[in-house]
Amino acid sequence: MLEAKGLTKHFGGLVAVADVSFSVPEGKIVALIGPNGAGKTTLFAIIAGFTQPDAGRVMFLGQDITFMAPHRICALGLVRTYQIVQPFGALTVRENIAVGAHLRLKSRKAALAFAEEVARQVGMGDVLDRAAAVLTVAGRKRLELARALATRPKLLLLDEVMAGLNPTEVEEIVQVIRAIRDSGVTILLIEHVMQAVMSLADHAYVLNQGRIIAEGHPHAVAEMPHVIEAYLGHGAAARLRARAGGAA
């Protein structure tokens, strides 16, 4: 469904994304993990049309979307959420979600009604008339998800929608995401909460310093020594192994 080939992005001297290729098959949940500053969000920005890559191509549903404007990419059915939430502060939750709903629905009434439906789907049914600016962190994360969902995407890009949530809230959002996948939406998610990645993702890519260093089933990649090192520093895998050996 989504195919990225050789994506590269420099910011001045810094290589944020270096020759990254990966694909997301239809109907799956694919996770993109990696330490802070690995280039994950930059990759999302490139895919969604907000950042122009220095090299490489992005194909979506067989179409080249590399230099397409964000709103056109969204219209094709690819929508992103923001890691740093971007609510329309002065608008209510219902109005926020309706902005997304309007992509497919011209009528105001229909968009507001659909917004309400989506809000219930993500558990925001009881805050519909609250201004987005007064929501809690968890509420704002959900709002990001709801607005994106209201555009009726084929592929949903979720950037750390679980960051800052407590374990109960994480469990709730995991259920919501699974339900979205079951309704036929393909998902690519960036996530640091490993237990969520483990339980949700069919496939994971590990990004480190702009490069993909591993891919495979989430359980498998989490065991790979060089992945552990990317997260915990050089020699960490060996130390862990030694400790595990000592305990046994």
């Binding site: 969604a48 907000f50 404007a69 964000p70 709103h71 969204c74 219209a75 929508v79 992103r80 959420t81 923001y82 971007q86 609510p87 329309f88 902005v99 997304g100 309007h102 992509l103 607005r147 994106a148 209201a150 555009t151």
Partner: peptide, 9 residues
């Protein structure tokens, strides 16, 4: 940019 992400031209 959030508006554009949701398909607003």
């Amino acid at each position: 940019s959030a508006a554009e992400a949701l398909g607003v031209n």
